[in-house]
C-alpha cells in the first residue's frame, strides 16, 4: 500500500519503517487507530475534567480554600505551563481526529438516502441521539472554551472590570453571574453532558473494553460519569450565581 496516511499525509510505507514503532504508527493511520487515538485523547480530557471539577468544588469550601488552591496551582510555574501545553495539544488532536474521521465518513456515503430511519426503536441506548451530535456538541464545547479562557484565564472580557477583583474566588464570582457567561456556561455544560454520555462509552468500546458480563455496568457507569461531571459543573455554576 503506497497510500498516504490520512492524517499526516506521509506515505504509510515510510512511517512503518520507523524502528520498533512501525506497527504503532501504522495503526494511527487507520480508521481503527484514529478511533483509538480519539478515545485516548477523549479519556485524557475526561481526566482533566475530573481534576478541574475537583478544584472547582473547593468553591463550596469558601474563599480562602479556593484561593489557596488557585495560588498553589499557579505557583507550579513551568510544570503548569507544560500541563497546559499538553492539554491544548490533546484538545487539538481530539478536534483534528474528529474532523478527519467525520470527513472519512462523509466520503464513505457520497449520496444520501432519501429516507433514513433508525432501527434501534424505543429501547435504544439513551445515548443513541447523542452519537449523532458528537461533532456539533464538540464544536460547541470548543467555542465555549474560547470564551472560558477569555473569561477566566486571560481575563480579557472588555465588559468586566477584572482590576477591582482580588483573588480567584472574587473573579469567579464576578464572571459567572454575568448574563453572557451564565447563558453560555449553562448551554455548554449541557452540551458537555450530551457529548460525554456517548463519548465515554464509545471511547471504551474503541479501546476494546467490552464483555458480555460487564457491558451493562460499563454502559450505566459511563452514563453516570458523564452526567456527574456535567452536573458537578452545573452545581458549581448554580452555587456561584445564587450566592452572588
Amino acid at each position: 500500500m503506497d497510500a498516504l496516511c490520512r492524517i499526516c499525509c506521509i506515505p504509510a510505507e515510510l512511517l512503518a519503517k520507523v524502528p520498533g514503532l512501525g506497527p504503532l504508527i501504522r495503526m494511527c493511520c487507520t480508521s481503527v487507530g484514529q478511533k483509538v487515538l480519539m478515545a485516548l485523547t477523549g479519556l485524557a480530557l475526561c481526566g482533566f475534567l475530573v481534576t478541574h471539577l475537583s478544584g472547582n468544588l473547593l468553591l463550596f469550601a469558601g474563599e480562602e480554600a479556593f484561593n489557596t488552591y488557585a495560588e498553589k496551582l499557579h505557583s507550579m510555574g513551568a510544570l503548569l505551563k507544560a500541563a497546559e501545553v499538553g492539554l491544548l495539544a490533546t484538545f487539538l488532536a481530539h478536534l483534528g481526529l474528529a474532523v478527519s474521521t467525520t470527513a472519512m465518513s462523509r466520503r464513505a456515503r457520497s449520496k444520501q438516502y432519501a429516507q433514513k430511519e433508525s432501527k434501534q426503536g424505543a429501547f435504544a441506548l439513551p445515548s443513541g441521539g447523542a452519537s449523532n451530535w458528537m461533532l456539533l456538541t464538540g464544536l460547541g464545547i470548543g467555542a465555549f472554551l474560547v470564551l472560558h479562557l477569555v473569561d477566566l484565564k486571560f481575563k480579557l472580557r472588555p465588559d468586566l472590570d477584572y482590576a477591582t477583583q482580588d483573588g480567584a474566588y472574587a473573579t469567579v464570582n464576578m464572571v459567572l453571574p454575568s448574563p453572557v457567561s451564565f447563558v453560555a456556561y449553562s448551554v455548554a455544560l449541557i452540551l458537555l453532558g450530551i457529548h460525554l454520555s456517548h463519548g465515554v462509552r464509545s471511547a471504551l468500546q474503541s479501546l476494546g473494553v467490552s464483555h458480555s458480563k460487564w457491558n451493562k455496568l460499563i454502559e450505566i457507569g459511563s452514563m453516570l460519569f458523564a452526567w456527574a461531571i456535567a452536573l458537578g459543573f452545573i452545581c458549581v455554576l448554580g452555587w456561584v450565581v445564587l450566592n452572588s
Binding site: 487507520t30 480508521s31 472519512m104 466520503r107 432501527k119 441506548l125 464509545s202
Partner: peptide, 23 residues
C-alpha cells in the same frame, strides 16, 4: 491488520459506536 487496511482502502467510513449496525 490486513483486513482493516483493506476495509479502509475500500472507502468505508469509521465506526462511531452508534450500534445502528447491530439493530
Amino acid at each position: 491488520v490486513s483486513m482493516v487496511s483493506q476495509m479502509d482502502d475500500e472507502g468505508f467510513g469509521s465506526c462511531t459506536n452508534t450500534s445502528e449496525c447491530e439493530a
